[in-house]
Simulated scan of single mutants.
Amino acid sequence: MSATVLLVVLIVLLLAVVPAWPYSRAWGYAPSDILGVIVAVLLVLLVMGRL
């Protein structure tokens, strides 16, 4: 159940990172940096066996 929720959240974040809308172009790299941190934490948890 929690893996499904995490997958959905990651997909939504991936869609949010794409600078397809004019107002989101000024955000810079902040959304992709946040997504990278989340993916790194999830990978560490996966390797440690806590996920």
Score class of each variant (00 low, 15 high):
residue 43 L to D: 00
residue 12 V to S: 12
residue 9 V to I: 15
residue 16 A to G: 09
residue 19 P to F: 03
residue 11 I to E: 14
residue 26 A to L: 12
residue 17 V to W: 05
residue 47 V to P: 00
residue 17 V to T: 11
residue 22 P to V: 14
residue 3 A to Y: 07
residue 50 R to Y: 09
residue 25 R to F: 09
residue 26 A to C: 10
residue 26 A to G: 06
residue 5 V to R: 13
residue 50 R to Q: 08
residue 23 Y to E: 15
residue 26 A to W: 12
residue 36 G to F: 04
residue 4 T to P: 04
residue 28 G to M: 05
residue 39 V to T: 08
residue 47 V to T: 04
residue 14 L to K: 08
residue 29 Y to G: 13
residue 7 L to I: 05
residue 13 L to Y: 08
residue 50 R to E: 03
residue 2 S to Y: 14
residue 5 V to I: 13
residue 42 L to E: 08
residue 15 L to Q: 02
residue 49 G to C: 05
residue 51 L to T: 00
residue 8 V to C: 12
residue 42 L to Y: 06
residue 51 L to M: 04
residue 17 V to R: 04
residue 18 V to F: 08
residue 42 L to T: 02
residue 14 L to N: 12
residue 35 L to W: 01
residue 37 V to D: 02
residue 30 A to W: 03
residue 11 I to R: 14
residue 37 V to W: 08
residue 7 L to E: 15
residue 28 G to W: 04
residue 48 M to G: 07
residue 40 A to L: 11
residue 41 V to A: 11
residue 4 T to N: 10
residue 47 V to S: 01
residue 13 L to Q: 11
residue 2 S to K: 08
residue 29 Y to C: 03
residue 1 M to A: 11
residue 27 W to P: 01
residue 8 V to A: 15
residue 1 M to W: 05
residue 22 P to T: 15
residue 8 V to K: 15
residue 12 V to K: 13
residue 37 V to A: 13
residue 4 T to R: 15
residue 3 A to D: 11
residue 51 L to F: 10
residue 7 L to G: 14
residue 45 L to M: 01
residue 38 I to L: 12
residue 35 L to C: 05
residue 42 L to I: 06
residue 47 V to W: 06
residue 2 S to V: 10
residue 21 W to P: 01
residue 45 L to F: 00
residue 7 L to V: 07
residue 40 A to N: 00
residue 39 V to I: 12
residue 43 L to Y: 02
residue 7 L to Y: 12
residue 12 V to M: 15
residue 16 A to I: 02
